[in-house]
Design a binder for these strands. Structure first.
Length: 510
RNA sequence: CGGGGCGUGGCGCAACCUGGUAGCGCGCCUGCUUUGGGAGCAGGAAGUCGGAGGUUCAAAUCCUCUCGCCCCGACCA
């Protein structure tokens, strides 16, 4: 192998994305101080810098949900085992990953330890999702068609005992919102399913700056118990797909099992039509993998934990007074500005001057870094670095100008991130029509240590579950969705060659 | 749960093969120096070597068991 003299650029994160993507992901989280592993297997501690992102997601999305008439409520963490047993497919889907509470007391074991005691008559399952317990409530709340629709959401934690966990992407416990609605007609429920998917897509694209593909899941990928599952899929920088949100049309399955029955205008007893939909802390994992670079986290301004960090620079004590006063004043002024309904959030870092201080904030992904020293103050200007640009591309900006344009700068960054992600997604989305080309696309050159490869393949699928599972077995590639905007186009199934009338999205997935 | 890899100060790693009681870089603390693009020098704090057992005069090192993490697979938001 030939090595050129080009000295490798020093990156804040090792390894880089191309060297080892999964390890890079871990390091970005560690060095941004967003979250850390906990003593509990598969569970994470979300630290303030990471939790702030979740709070921002929650605040924005909560408003968007409420704007469609949804109201928040809260249901129990514990679900009686008998509730889960009511919907056959639903149980089957979740049975393998349930945490079960069987006792309600601890007793001394005589050796300084404790043992569970007080066995429960009926075990309680820590909710993996709440269709059954919310369905039980709905059945009591509904008697007439006049009681419908019911539009409920809850922000909660859920537990799914996963075999393999990955911080933010798949943890045993995670935070989410789950919406549950009940309607008089099939049409209205289907419409709600679409509406919520649209809201998720809008939110993820406009706030998280992640372009998504809206689509339908195949039967094999459907939510257990759903008639139809819709999803938004985003492409990560390793070209894998991430399901960023789902919206389910549950038909009458859950109203049958929970007894959500209403009397219609024509005096008939009917089962309600229900939906459920959710997004989770997984979005934060997606955010990281969609935008971050080899210097660490990159946060879209609209959702960032904070917008700007002020880095005062002074050497002599007499400078300190001037610089700190200028900094405090600037901070107070910036905090008066509203950026997309949220005050500009300012951090001030008074630690010792040095490159390392600035690099910490680069690794934390804060959109703007503002250096303030005596020379800047003399010119009434600031030295500003943007996270979406190289770390050397800092510019001097007049203070007034900065205050006047900070919203525009942040909006421009937000737009840049989206455009960049969209271009990446487009560059790595290809039409594939032959089986050979399809397999070549998804097989890495180096099997032992796979390089970043693949992407979204838009290919024809005959609709058979055999072909779907064959491809999954061969390549660990799955049908991410049948896009809502897919057009009729005659072609051949990329697996079996039989006629098919539309393309679906194939990809490796998280 | 199967296959592979790895557990050593906060982070990243070395020492392990060939046993002799732990070292490096970054970070952290103190002091001095320094011209605002990842500062220099000096001093300092911090480690049950993942855990348990065994072999041995002696174990991070060898053996057995165990726990956890990461990657690949099956499952999933």
């Amino acid at each position: 192998m030939i090595y050129f003299m080009t000295k490798k650029t020093k990156t804040a994160i090792t390894p880089t994305r191309s060297e080892n993507y999964p390890e890079w992901y871990q390091q970005v989280i560690k060095s941004s101080d967003m979250a850390e592993k906990s003593p509990v297997r598969g569970c994470m501690v979300i630290k303030p810098w990471g939790y702030a992102i979740w709070e921002n997601i929650r605040n924005v999305l909560d408003g968007m949900l409420k704007a469609t008439g949804v109201k928040n409520a809260y249901f129990p963490l514990f679900i009686p085992l008998s509730f889960l047993e009511k919907e056959a497919e639903h149980v089957e889907g979740f049975a393998k990953e349930c945490a079960v509470v069987t006792h309600h007391r601890l007793e001394k074991n005589g050796e300084g330890g404790l043992i569970p005691a007080g066995k429960l008559n009926e075990p309680l399952v820590v909710r993996p999702t709440s269709e059954t317990i919310i369905g039980d409530s709905f059945s009591k709340w509904v008697s007439s068609y006049r009681d419908l629709p019911i539009l409920i959401n809850q922000w909660a934690n859920v537990v799914r005992w996963e075999m393999r966990t990955r911080i933010f992407l798949r943890t045993s416990e995670f935070l989410w919102q789950e919406g549950h609605t009940a309607h008089t007609t099939r049409e209205e429920a289907v419409e709600r399913t679409h509406l919520m998917l649209d809201i998720y897509a809008e939110f993820v694209e406009k706030y998280l700056a992640m372009p998504v593909v809206k689509g339908y899941k195949t039967p094999a990928e459907r939510f257990p118990g759903a008639v139809d599952t819709m999803c938004i899929e985003a492409m990560m920088q390793d070209k894998k797909a991430l399901q960023a949100g789902t919206s389910h049309f549950l038909g009458q399955n859950f109203s049958r099992s929970s007894g959500i029955i209403f009397q219609s205008a024509s005096e008939q007893e009917e089962f309600a039509w229900t939906t459920s939909w959710g997004v989770s802390t997984r979005l934060i994992g997606g955010l990281i993998m969609a935008h971050s670079d080899d210097d660490g986290l990159v946060l879209p301004p609209k959702i960032a934990s904070a917008h700007v960090v002020l880095l005062p620079i002074f050497r002599k004590p007499e400078e300190k007074t001037i610089v700190m006063e200028f900094t405090e004043n600037l901070s107070n002024e910036l905090k008066q500005i509203f950026y997309h309904n949220r005050r500009i959030e300012v951090e001030i870092d008074t630690r010792e001057i040095g490159g390392a201080r600035g690099w910490d904030w680069i690794k934390k992904g804060i959109p703007l870094r503002v250096e303030i020293g005596p020379r800047d103050i003399a010119q009434d200007s600031l030295f500003v670095g943007r996270r979406d640009q190289g770390h050397r591309e800092k510019k001097s900006i007049k203070r007034e100008e900065f205050i006047k344009t900070i919203k525009d700068i942040l909006d421009e960054m937000q737009a840049n991130l989206f455009e960049r992600a969209l271009a990446f997604q487009k560059d790595n989305t290809v039409l594939i029509d032959t089986k050979k080309e399809f397999y070549d696309f998804f097989i890495p050159e180096n099997i032992d240590k796979p390089e970043i490869h693949g992407g979204f393949a838009l290919s024809h699928w005959c609709g058979s579950e055999n072909c779907e599972s064959q491809i999954k077995t061969d390549l660990s590639v799955t049908i991410r969705s049948i896009p809502v905007n897919t057009k009729k186009e005659n072609g051949k199934c990329v697996c079996c060659g039989k006629p098919a009338d539309k393309r679906v999205v194939f990809a490796k997935a998280y």
